[in-house]
Design a protein around this nucleic acid. Structure first.
Lengths: 342, 342
DNA sequence: TTTCAAAATGCAAGCGCTTAAATTCGCGTT
DNA sequence: AACGCGAATTTAAGCGCTTGCATTTTGAAA
């Protein structure tokens, strides 16, 4: 019975010691060309792959980093992870992904699970989490980078963008187009600093112009289509006609909510943007296939993923020029936002 | 400086041997209640987590399964993986995901990488791959399950649905609604049995009715929005008016292509479904927010992921009742498909 | 040819855990 | 009180690999 071949098998066939084989695998330049090719032939002969556990035990490194994201079902994370993974793979690092479903407790637990699996690096989404988690990571000496959010003076290594400023800019533009009755469908803000920052940004813009986002005009809902549609229905049902103060614009916490809102508007027999304007956030593919296409905030998800990978690799290598990375966002105007009708 | 605590530290504090601590961790019922609680206290004291490498080396299991999917950016895989991961987690198994970008060579390489990382199980998408890969997996004794495709007499453990039959049913329905000039935008069929099966299914249906899907009416394109839009433009540009034999229906290989096609149709100033009907495949969220909403084939992605997890867990446990699982698909009629105008 | 760094390789001690096999313990019987 | 037996625990041998140090080889200079 063919057991899995070991270093020793390879060494035997090549007529060298296991140390040499190990070196061929890890620091080939330290082995003479002649020996190296002999060893490589033996490796090929056995179709040998090193045993992960043995390697991890002896070197105390796994070349694995863990990412804990809210959910894979949101295109933005899928896209960011894809880029992250590709960039890490170039350095021989494997990515392990776990999901928290937007639940802080579950996130903490996933981090512990991954620690148990020996990951030697983390990518985490956003900043809001139990301080104890941060101290644990630091005590263990496991490097990590926070992605997707950024604010001035963030004390941790992070790669992201200013959610608050971007949301503010969007709300300002909506105001500029003449809208005064502005509602918002936000993501769930508990344990989600990005969602909270987006609400704050909209509030900033409105407050600076003497408007207030009161309770009846702000609904938090999970990032799902039906939830967005529900929220829009509630907003519009509360004041079904323009003269009853129906909102003329709905600012949404992300594109998925906005897509849901557009569907609801259509189902109610209203027209966007003629009756109600809608804006999103993220600029996922979805945005351009909607009808009307969606005015939204473009976020460079792929580049963020790549930058996160680079920063994490530097941290692992204990390099010092590990400054945070902040990305610019861009307001993309499409059909779903128009000037307010009188 | 606090080094990572080891079994020995815990054993020392609890006043037992490392073997006992190991048992408390792995088979608690074999340890007396008294000792067990003492050990558990020591574990808590040190905040001890077992070293993954040590464990993997000694037990030769990693409790990790690997999945190699084409891309995370396709919602169907994201959704299936999410379910897969949740189901595996219940049994303490971690999922590692790698992507191939629809490239068979890259897939093979990713499989080897994961093998190197000691995964003790695989989830692979579809059936089309180098036979050598299958023999390698079998030789190594690593269980695997194929997901997303199913056909009668598939020789490997698989969990999926009959892509060909589903596509056939869709084409039949299109025909039944009076369409005779039917075009198809398919996914890239090289190395993708699902995409190929969908083309075959459409061919089956048309051939049985005396129609033929000739070259000018079949375009293969990557599963991306713009690619779908491009393809639709080409199909419609070739015969821009009804009396020039413009297709009255475009059957698409998946929903993303269909969404792209709808966008192109809109941009060309045509109306779907009045001028051209469009159908998709997968029934992702996107389908219902499109305008017109998309007639498509519903595939139970989440349930497939769960079923794959269950089957793989059984295979790992060397259980024998490991029969394949086939799911039914359902044709979902929405606005994008209508009777052919005369 | 001899000499001697530098380069290449080998030796061997672990890394932290699991698990047969051996030993000790606890306790009901006789 | 001695015995016997199953249950609980310990002993100790690895699992496959890396790596500091020791040893050997190489090849250029003398």
């Amino acid at each position: 019975m063919r057991a899995r071949p070991t270093l020793e098998d390879v060494a035997g066939l090549a007529g060298v010691s296991t140390a040499t084989v190990s070196r061929v695998l890890n620091e080939p330049e330290r082995v003479s060309a002649k020996t190296r090719s002999r060893v490589e032939a033996a490796v090929a002969h056995f179709d040998y792959t090193p045993h992960f556990g043995g390697r991890a035990l002896a070197s105390n490194r796994t070349n694995t980093v863990g990412a804990v994201i809210p959910t894979m079902e949101n295109a933005i994370f899928a896209r960011g992870l894809q880029a992250l993974q590709e960039a890490l793979a170039e350095d021989g690092v494997t990515l392990v992904v776990a999901t928290s479903n937007y639940d802080p407790e579950r996130e903490a637990q996933q981090i512990r699970t991954l620690l148990g699996r020996g990951v030697d690096g983390f990518v985490l989404i956003g900043e809001a989490r139990d301080p104890a988690l941060y101290t644990m990571l630091e005590r263990r000496g496991v490097p990590f980078v926070l992605v997707w959010s950024w604010r001035p003076d963030c004390p941790w290594p992070c790669v992201g963008f200013d959610n608050r400023a971007a949301a503010r800019a969007m709300a300002e533009r909506v105001f500029e187009l003449g809208h005064r009755r502005i509602a918002m469908i936000a993501g769930v803000t508990r344990g989600n600093d990005r969602a909270a920052a987006r609400v704050d940004g909209v509030r900033d813009a409105l407050a600076a112009r003497g408007l207030h986002l009161d309770e009846s005009n702000l609904i938090e809902s999970p990032y799902r289509l039906e939830a967005g549609a529900d929220a829009a229905r509630r907003l519009l049902a509360a004041a079904p006609t323009p003269w009853q103060n129906r909102p003329t614009a709905i600012v949404c916490g992300n594109d998925v909510l906005a897509a849901g809102a557009l569907t609801a508007i259509r189902d109610l027999g209203l027209k966007a943007p003629a009756d109600v304007s809608v804006t999103g956030f993220d600029d996922i593919d979805l945005a351009i296939v909607l009808d009307p296409s969606l005015t939204t905030v473009h976020v460079p998800h792929r580049r963020m993923g790549q930058a996160a990978a680079r920063l994490l690799l530097r941290l692992r290598a204990r390099e010092d020029d590990t400054t945070n990375v902040v990305f610019e966002t861009a307001l993309v105007e499409r059909g779903s936002l128009a000037a307010a009708g009188k």
